[in-house]
Simulated scan of single mutants.
Amino acid sequence: MKPSRRAALLVAAAGIALSPFASAFAQGAARFPDHPIRIVVPFPPGGSVDPLARLISQEMSKTFNQQVVVDNRPGGNTVIGTDYAAKAPADGYTLLLTASSHVTNPQLVPTNYDALKDFVPVATVSTADMILVTNPSVPAHNLKELLALAKAKPGALNFSSAGSGNPNHLAGELMNMMAGVKTTHVPYKGGAPAIQDLVGGQVQFSFGSPIIVLPFIKAGKLNALAVTSPQRMAILPNVPTMAESGLPGYEVRIWYAMLAPANTPKDVVAKIGNEVNRIMALPEMKEKLDAAGMEKFTMPSDKFAQQMKVDMEKFGKIIKEANVKLD
């Protein structure tokens, strides 16, 4: 047999042998998923991320006709669960539902993963803004008056947070930096105890999540001075933004998003992302977000990848300049 004919036969045989595999690869998204999916949540049950994950998993299970399991892996300031997800196979069957602390924690604790390079955005889920609240005993009815008190007595005003490096801690430090004032941070182990001591008068102000502070605002036990969002909150239309109150450019928003290990096939990522976007657009989901003081957050994956980078730089600057350390 001539060499050219032999080579042609070998190529043809290889094509026949490989065609099922090529076909399977091409149909990856069409066949996905064919076994259960795991959504890793690097936070303990409860809180704000866990309920979101469970709502999404329930709807996703119906659409995909596969079990979608929520896997809580808290610890290490979210590093334990995030590291697990980063090292999972990049096949779409292990996902990470996390918060904006994803880009700040690596600047506070050592990690074995790169928060940006080791993940690809699947879908944005929601955002939550914070409310600057004071104990009624504080003689300040707006941000301007609070900052005047802080300037008159540097370090005398104490503000509580859910822990060092937490978004409500960084919100306070950003206010200090932009206004040129000094207030004292008092970290707590969680948002609830931080607000309880504010109500009790042990600290003077805090940047609290709506789901925690709204009941106290309505009961007259806390005063709302401003919100950290770029626009006023629908639930508090008479409370101005921090920017409106004298700190133009001030904005701190907590985002929640689904990520996948880097190199997960693009068509699989798109299929999951489309499903998450469909779920978040459901009327009942809007009701649940409203009740928790959250809003639906929709941003194309490529733009969100850039947003994560921007947030990492923004909050990294705060962490460095304020010399933020974990408790």
Rank of each mutant, 00 (worst) to 15 (best):
M285S: 08
A162V: 11
M175V: 15
F205R: 05
N238I: 05
R253H: 02
N168K: 06
N158L: 13
M299V: 14
P36Q: 01
T241Y: 11
P237Y: 08
I56Y: 08
S61Q: 12
M242N: 02
I80T: 14
N277G: 00
V252A: 05
T94D: 06
T184A: 07
S301H: 04
K117P: 06
T63M: 05
Q231T: 15
T183K: 00
Q306A: 14
M175N: 02
I37D: 09
S100Y: 05
V68I: 12
I254Q: 13
I217Y: 06
G293Q: 03
H102C: 01
W255M: 07
Q202Y: 14
A128F: 09
V49H: 03
P265L: 02
M280S: 02
D71T: 13
A53R: 00
L9F: 13
A179L: 09
N135P: 12
P240D: 01
F64L: 14
R73G: 01
A26E: 10
K151H: 15
K221M: 13
L116Q: 09
A260M: 02
A8E: 14
V276K: 00
R5H: 05
A150T: 09
P240M: 04
I195W: 06
N323L: 08
G316N: 05
V310I: 14
I39C: 02
G92Y: 11
L225S: 10
P187N: 11
E321R: 11
Y250V: 13
L225F: 12
M308C: 12
P33Y: 09
R73W: 11
A22D: 00
G273F: 09
P300N: 04
S209F: 09
V69A: 10
S4L: 13
H169K: 01
R232I: 10
T264F: 08
L259S: 01
A171M: 06
A29E: 09
V268S: 03
S229W: 10
A29Y: 09
S206E: 14
L170K: 08
S61P: 02
G220S: 07
A291D: 09
A194H: 07
S137A: 13
L52R: 09
G293L: 04
P110G: 00
I39S: 01
D34H: 08
F207K: 00
V268N: 03
V11W: 13
V49Q: 02
L143N: 02
V252Y: 03
S100R: 04
Q196L: 11
